[in-house]
Amino acid sequence: MKKTLSIIALSIIGFGLVSCKKENKEVAGKETVATDSTATTAAHADPTLAPASTETADPASNQPLTTIALAENSFDFGNIKKGDKVEHIYEVTNTGTNPLVISEVKPGCGCTAGDFTKEPILPGKKGKITLHFDSSNFDGNVNKYADVFANVEKAPIKLTFTANIQP
């Protein structure tokens, strides 16, 4: 009797593990499909571009692709006082033939916030991405970033900034 119950219990546990493994494989397969094409092309073409994130669905990915040009993708605030709240505007130009749709600006940490042009940016037109930084909890040199999700082939686009926080 004990042997039969043990076999049944192991069968149930084993079935549960197989089911979990199958679900994980399906999720992993979706992630691989979502990131493979952008990760390899982004890494080879431009080291400042990060592989696509699979944490959230990107609404811009449903839009026809376009191309983008940045006036700059990094900025140095130089020396700032601890507690200062600073911001920098990154100018973007739609260099493609379809409207540019920025769907999200995702900062790397809570000390940084992003604003961006919400309406589609028509071909040849310019838009803005503003990064706001609160230096209250930092000392010395800092390097921060934000990922910009848009309907471009090599999304997300990584914007970076540095600052030297002084007391």
Rank of each mutant, 00 (worst) to 15 (best):
Q63F: 10
Q63P: 05
P64V: 08
P64S: 11
L65T: 06
T66Y: 04
T67G: 03
I68Y: 00
I68R: 01
I68P: 01
I68S: 00
A69C: 00
A69P: 00
A69R: 08
A69E: 11
L70W: 13
L70K: 03
A71K: 13
N73G: 04
N73Q: 13
S74N: 15
S74K: 12
S74W: 09
F75V: 11
F75W: 15
F75G: 05
D76I: 01
D76Y: 01
G78N: 05
G78W: 02
N79C: 03
N79D: 15
I80Y: 06
K81N: 15
K81R: 14
G83S: 12
G83L: 05
D84F: 00
K85Y: 06
V86K: 13
V86L: 08
E87W: 04
I89P: 05
E91T: 15
E91D: 10
V92S: 02
V92I: 14
V92R: 00
N94H: 06
N94V: 00
T95S: 13
N98G: 05
N98I: 02
N98A: 15
N98V: 03
V101F: 10
V101N: 08
V101K: 07
S103T: 12
E104Y: 11
E104S: 14
E104R: 14
V105N: 06
V105P: 08
K106V: 14
G108C: 09
G108S: 09
G108H: 03
G108A: 09
G108K: 01
C109E: 13
G110N: 13
G110A: 14
T112P: 06
T112H: 02
T112Q: 09
A113M: 14
G114A: 12
T117C: 11
T117D: 08
E119M: 12
I121G: 00
I121H: 01
I121Y: 01
I121N: 01
L122D: 10
L122A: 14
L122G: 10
G124P: 07
G124V: 09
K125Y: 12
K126P: 06
K126R: 11
K126W: 03
K126Y: 07
G127I: 00
K128W: 05
I129Q: 03
T130C: 09
L131E: 02
H132P: 01
F133L: 13
F133E: 05
D134C: 08
S136G: 11
N137I: 03
F138Q: 07
D139F: 11
G140W: 00
N141W: 12
N141I: 14
N141M: 13
V142Y: 08
V142W: 09
N143M: 13
K144S: 13
Y145A: 14
